[in-house]
Amino acid sequence: MRSLYHSSRKQEKLTESITMSSEPKDSTKTPAEQSAAAVIENKRSPADFLKAVLGRPVNVRLNTGTDYRGVLACLDGYMNIAMEQTEEYVDGQLKSKYGDCFIRGNNVLYISSPTR
């Protein structure tokens, strides 16, 4: 328990030093290294996108090519999805509507959010 705490403190210091060092443009670093440092600085991950689209209209495409458009209610680690006001599109044509629907995560190809 104590060692875990210790290592997380160490991690904090490490990221701190990375952000510190990347602030002034360091000419000794390659562009790739600089961009990698920028990513660490921003700490962006795919999960952040999913958090951002919760409660918003999304388009979910399944492996079969079927699209589901609706409001993303929630999702879990398996990428199981609960949606509201869902419309089912097969080959771009509206096939049916569901008030609520649950989509099993293994069928999901992608989740996209409409461009604003």
Partner: peptide, 11 residues
């Protein structure tokens, strides 16, 4: 594993 979608009746 064969389930794709589950929808409850309209409430």
């Amino acid at each position: 594993d064969i389930v794709v979608l589950v929808s409850p009746p309209l409430r």
